[in-house]
Simulated scan of single mutants.
Amino acid sequence: MQWLVLGLIVFLGVHSVRIVADDWRTQTIDRWGLTAWKGVYSLLSLLGLVLIVVGYDLARQAPVVLWSPPLGMRHAASLLTLLAFVLLVAAYVPRNALKARLGHPMVLAVKLWAFAHLLSNGTLADLLLFGGFLVWAVFNYRSARRRNRAEVEGMDNEDAPAAADGGAPSASLTATVATVVVGLASWAVFAFWAHAALIGVRPFG
């Protein structure tokens, strides 16, 4: 369990710098240069991710059961995860309405993914892993929206709405439909095949 906890501290810690120390981050990038910052950031993120994967796998071999979720929670989790996949795709498809309306869809996707897995899993390792990501996503989203509002205050009224929604341009119906279709397809591949192949658990089996 200690490797899982250490991995969460490293991974979520690195990804929380902008939440708790945005000015320090800016100053460090100015001193080191953007390339060096990204290099250290990526290496620490990779280290944290490896520790999380190894730690969670070890914890699953001797699970500490805290509660037993009802079977119906699996169906709720599947629906929430489907929505999370659509939001994840929305973070990368330009000019889709989800990103324009919600702002920061990737962080929202992490929220749904983590909450879904808390509903359907009841071990201590699950609580640490998915609970940790859920708490991080909540604070990260609040921080990102706060930065958006600060940017709006420094803009003319004409530019303010776009900045308030994460700086996204006007939405395209084609891009929005493509986002939903790709998200649904990605979820289907992961739910019916990749989840079992990579994680060893069949969501629908």
Rank of each mutant, 00 (worst) to 15 (best):
Q2K: 05
L4N: 08
L4H: 07
L6P: 03
L6H: 03
I9A: 15
F11Y: 08
F11D: 04
L12M: 02
L12H: 06
L12S: 01
G13R: 02
H15L: 08
I19E: 07
A21D: 02
A21E: 07
W24L: 15
W24F: 13
R25E: 04
T26R: 11
T28D: 10
I29S: 00
D30Q: 13
G33W: 13
G33Y: 01
L34M: 07
T35N: 00
T35Q: 13
A36T: 07
A36W: 04
W37S: 01
G39N: 10
S42M: 07
S42L: 07
S42P: 00
L43N: 05
L44C: 02
L46H: 03
V50N: 09
L51G: 07
I52G: 04
V53K: 04
G55W: 04
G55K: 04
G55H: 06
D57K: 08
L58N: 14
A59F: 04
A59C: 03
A59P: 03
R60N: 12
Q61V: 08
P63A: 03
P63V: 02
P63F: 07
L66N: 09
L66T: 08
S68A: 14
S68M: 14
P70D: 14
H75G: 03
H75T: 11
H75F: 09
A76L: 14
A76V: 13
A77Y: 05
L79S: 00
L80V: 07
T81D: 09
L82Y: 03
A84E: 00
V86D: 01
L87D: 06
A90Q: 06
V93T: 09
N96G: 10
A97D: 01
A100T: 12
G103A: 14
G103I: 10
H104E: 08
P105F: 15
M106F: 15
V107D: 09
K111H: 05
L112H: 03
A114L: 11
A116D: 04
H117D: 05
L118P: 01
L119T: 15
S120E: 15
S120L: 02
G122P: 11
L124H: 03
A125E: 01
L127P: 05
L128F: 09
L128Y: 13
G131K: 09
G131Y: 11
L134P: 00
L134S: 01
L134T: 04
W136A: 00
A137V: 12
V138G: 07
V138M: 01
F139E: 04
R142A: 15
A144D: 09
R147C: 11
R149D: 06
E153S: 02
E158Q: 10
E158Y: 09
E158P: 05
A160W: 10
A160P: 04
P161I: 02
P161A: 02
A168F: 11
A168D: 13
A168S: 11
S170T: 14
L173Q: 13
T174S: 03
T174P: 00
A175S: 15
A178I: 12
A178L: 15
L184S: 06
L184C: 15
W187L: 07
A188V: 09
V189Q: 02
V189W: 12
F190Q: 00
F192W: 06
A196W: 10
G200M: 06
V201N: 00
R202H: 12
R202K: 00
G205A: 00
G205I: 05
